[in-house]
Every structure is written in C-alpha cells, then in structure tokens.
C-alpha cells in the first residue's frame, strides 16, 4: 500500500535495548532539567521591575490638555457614541467666557470596569483630546472607585504637545480671512 504514488513509507526507527530499558532516557531527561536549574531565570520581579511599553500600547484612556493647559475636549460626545461597551458618560455644559469653544464637559466619566481598551475613543476624537495612556495598573476597592472622573483622567493624561496646533493655525487663518472665529467650518 505504500507504493502508491505520492506516498512514502517512513521507517520507524527500531527501539534499541537502551530505549526499551527507559532508564537511559530518564537520566537524559533529568540531566536536561538539572541543567535548567542553573540557567538564567526569565522571571521579572514585577512591582520592582516593569516592562518597557511599546509606543502603541493601549492603557487606560485619558484626557489631555494642550500646551497652554487648555481643556481640549469640546464635549462633542463622539467618543461617548463610538465606545462599544458604553464606558464613557459625558454631560456637556456651556463654556464660560465664550470664545471659539462653545462647550466643555461638565462631567466626563469613564467606567474602567466597562472599558475594553479598544482605543476607538482616541481614534474618533476630532479634537485629539482623548488618548490611550500607558497606565495599566487599574485597581479599586469598589465599583464606584473604578469610575474615573474628569480630574483623574486629566491627571493620567497630563499635557500633550500638540504637533498640529490646530486651533492656533485656525486662528491665524481666520484672522487672515477677517473672520472672528477659527473654530469649526467657516460660517458664511
């Protein structure tokens, strides 16, 4: 049956006496395990030693401020809508003093028990106000504690240098065009 085209018989190596006695193989195995006793250990002593996280790491989502310590979020609620497990709760309010930004979040909560660290919120945000941080040690003693409020989210996010300087450029543009507001689509 093995002479069928495309088939090749593989000879099983016959067991030698040493193989049958098993003990030589056992001793060989023991030598291998014993050599590992003296090998360098791969364990990372966690709380003292930590991973260096890659740039693309998705930790706790956090809110960031721009270079001028301004709240970037304009409470557009896009992230709230896109969030698959509905972890985000936003209550918008009018931004006092007016200016380019009309709204700001009065309440911005992320329930870390719900968050799945998918990063959609970071992706969808038109203001680049929400970023996945590298923080991953999320602990709490109660469910309430696991809901991160705005202040905590800013604390984690901190200030983020904005390479686009979107608003500044928009300001300049608007000024050049003789319009007052640079924020949002041009109003005719």
């Amino acid at each position: 049956m093995s002479d069928r085209p495309g088939y090749r018989t593989v000879e099983r190596p016959a067991l030698t006496l040493a193989d049958r006695l098993v003990f030589p193989a056992i001793l060989k195995g023991m030598a291998i395990t014993a050599s590992h006793i003296f090998e360098k250990k791969v364990t990372m002593q966690y709380p003292e030693e930590k991973w260096t996280l890659p740039e693309y790491y998705r930790g706790v989502p956090s809110l960031v401020m721009d270079d001028e310590n301004r709240e970037k979020c304009v409470a557009c609620s896009l992230c709230e809508f896109v969030c698959p497990p509905r972890a985000i709760t936003i209550v918008p309010e009018e931004r006092p003093g007016g200016g380019r930004e009309e709204k700001q979040p009065a309440v911005f909560d992320i329930d870390m028990l719900r968050c799945i660290f998918c990063g959609y919120c970071e992706e969808v945000c038109p203001e680049e106000a929400i970023f996945m941080s590298k923080e991953y040690e999320v602990v709490g003693r109660s469910r309430e504690e696991m809901v991160f409020h705005k202040d905590r989210l800013y604390e984690i996010g901190g200030v983020r240098k904005d390479p686009h300087r979107k608003w500044k450029n928009a300001d300049d543009e608007a000024r050049a065009q003789g319009r007052g507001h640079g924020h949002g689509p041009a109003q005719v």
Binding site: T33, A34, H36, I37, E39, K40, K41, V42, T43, Q45
Partner: peptide, 10 residues
C-alpha cells in the same frame, strides 16, 4: 522552588 528553577523561573 525547584519546579520554578527547572522551568527557568524564580
């Protein structure tokens, strides 16, 4: 401990 050492752990 020994099992850990054999598996290159601590």
């Amino acid at each position: 401990r020994v099992s850990a050492w054999i598996q290159d752990r601590v």
